[in-house]
Design a protein around this nucleic acid. Structure first.
Lengths: 364, 364
DNA sequence: CAAAAAAACTAGATCGATCCAGTAAACTTT
DNA sequence: AAAGTTTACTGGATCGATCTAGTTTTTTTG
């Protein structure tokens, strides 16, 4: 209960018979102590169970070796990146503190709490704020995934994956399987949606088929809604809505067209903004009796942990989170050291899963 | 680039024409300053954009008003609690710092990083460590959801929901709908699994029906696997496995028994360890053509955000995260103040969704 | 071997706040 | 109006580390 008074550097110095300053040198691993005393001091420190007080250290030294990370706690993919950021920061000799955003906690607020703790740089995952809202911080800010809207060059540095390339990978994969009529469910106003939609449209351009973009969003429910819209446009009957629990069950399943019975101009594949949306869409497709990948191929984006679950096994675009995390930390470290802010773009890769296959031959 | 020197308390004092100590009083909101000067100082501080330096404050005062939270970044329900903890702590006048656990970051390590930042208490969400691994910290530790195995009473305080009551709510709900043969997919070795399984078995005891427990786990894939096992035991044909992408699609769906055609002793409802597992199970049931809730009612546990997505709309047991978070913070605050560690149990509630309904009348 | 250079070590100032003891002024009380 | 009490405010010590500038010891070198 009664907190034992902390073992301080002075205690170690007294016990080792040296000055406080020398203990400081040894603990920091700085130059200026002989190997013999170094070992001795470390031994004494260990015996006393000494742990340096970060607060005091931070107060005095300009260097805190602390990187703050702002993330949205509800976004599973951010969570994965957080994990990787811990490792990346560790490799560069930095520690990480987290601050979550949420409905009642904006990005500014999150960043400020990190500054109070002495963060030397802040990495914001998929920032939604504009430059105006995120400017004026006394430390470098790195945006990981997505850029800060309206920022002057050099103010923020950003690390993102090449959205265009990712979409092109997805489209190339589908075309390689034989797909021609490919639809897109976009991310609505989410970060990165415009870039991905644009790349999709560019890919369709000149292919002889019209681009079909369904308005979506970043969430499962958005994908589900868009999927329902796509099914309707394909002339596929929707199942009764889930709302009425008791109305179900004994009712016979609605008649379904055979696989080849859908409208001949209907898409045979769909590229979806992200994995969460794709999961919602998958659920809706399957609930409607449309088989994936038999009746429709589906490609997501993010290669999130969810997508890799064996019963889902989504074909998706992987963003190499480890590389993104490492690049973000390196960029932050470089700017802490006074270097210039630079924008890093990491190449994505295709992750083949079980939700894509060759389209059903017409008339089967 | 060049970090502007921080505005310090001395700057504010000079600008306001008062002493540093008085500024400190005003900033802390302590007694001992007239309303007029209070307003004046605050105005000057705001004009200069002054923000107190947490590090210095922490160093000097024994109080840091900082609560550390350890959570598993991959667990969506933890993320929800984190969000609520921010609010709960704020209400009690505390700030929150986060530290994530992960494959390469254990609970001890996470707690230590929080202590280095000066946390006065630590809340661990669903701790997996035993008392031995988590003992010896100089600050109070509160476990939120789940208890620390083998801890002496008074060492840790815990805040959890009443697992038994939750399961009884689920069972009561199903029985009220007319279900008698109810199965359970458990949580394997996950925190809380034993308590929930025990409560289920107690509920089945003396009902005239045998308890059916399928080994599961906390993840979607665990639920999916257990669901497949349940289907097999029900004599329901499994669909071809997702593994072979090209093998699907054109193949005709396997013949399926009519709703009433399954083995007469088969369960009509299943209570599942948590929502994630339930989601995996739902997916598998539906992929096999078994309608939920028509052919089988499903109840989850957690009332996670996922469960509330409209296209999922899972019937589940809600744990009132806000209440749990508030209780955890209150408990931490009480123990910081030297109070005794007490264990709080919060009552869960039933959240009616679209995955439960009356069982199909036999022979339909 | 003395002088110069390098390495090992130390005292004291310092970071930016809080805490404590004490002073000055305003307000009660008798 | 003198004595006591409360309120408003201040100077200086302090938290536990780092940093700067110096001092002592050891090593190198001409």
């Amino acid at each position: 209960m009664a907190a034992a008074p902390r073992t301080t550097m002075a205690d170690v110095a007294a016990a080792a018979g040296v000055s406080r300053a020398l203990v400081s040198i040894v603990i920091r691993g700085a130059a200026g102590a002989s190997d013999a005393t170094r070992r001795h001091v470390l031994q004494v420190a260990a015996d006393l169970g000494y742990r340096p007080d970060t607060r005091a250290r931070l107060l005095r030294s300009s260097r805190t070796r602390l990187i703050g990370v702002v993330f949205n706690v509800t976004e599973p993919y951010h969570a994965e990146l957080v994990e990787l950021l811990y490792e990346a920061a560790d490799a560069e000799g930095y520690a990480v503190t987290l601050s979550a955003t949420g409905p009642r906690r904006g990005e500014r607020e999150a960043v400020e709490s990190l500054l109070d703790l002495g963060a030397e740089a802040v990495i914001i995952i998929a920032p939604s704020g504009t430059a105006g809202q995120l400017a004026g911080f006394p430390v470098p800010v790195v945006s990981l995934l997505g850029t800060v809207g309206g920022a002057e060059p050099g103010t923020f540095s950003s690390v993102s994956s090449d959205e265009g390339a990712g979409i092109r990978l997805a489209m190339g994969h589908l075309r390689g399987l034989g797909h021609r009529r490919i639809a897109h469910i976009d991310g609505g106003s989410a970060v990165g949606s415009a870039a991905r939609r644009g790349a999709y449209e560019a890919c369709m351009d000149g292919s002889g088929e019209a681009a079909v973009v369904l308005p979506g969003g970043p969430l499962e429910s958005d994908g589900s809604r868009a999927a329902a819209a796509l099914l309707t446009s394909m002339g596929w009957p929707l199942p009764p809505h889930d709302a009425g629990p008791a109305a179900r069950g004994t009712a016979a399943s609605p008649a379904r067209p055979a696989t080849g019975g859908r409208a001949s101009g209907a898409p045979t594949a769909v590229v979806i903004f992200n994995d969460r949306s794709a999961l919602g869409a998958l659920d809706t497709f399957r609930a409607a009796g449309l088989r994936v990948p038999g009746g429709l191929s589906v490609v997501g984006y993010d290669n999130s942990r969810m997508a890799r679950l064996e019963h889902i096994n989504l074909t998706t675009i992987g963003q190499d989170g480890a590389e993104l995390a490492a690049a973000a930390v390196r960029s932050a470290a470089a700017r802490i050291g006074g270097g210039p802010g630079q924008d890093v773009v990491v190449a994505p890769s295709l992750v083949r899963g079980g939700t894509t296959a060759a389209p059903a031959p017409p008339g089967t």
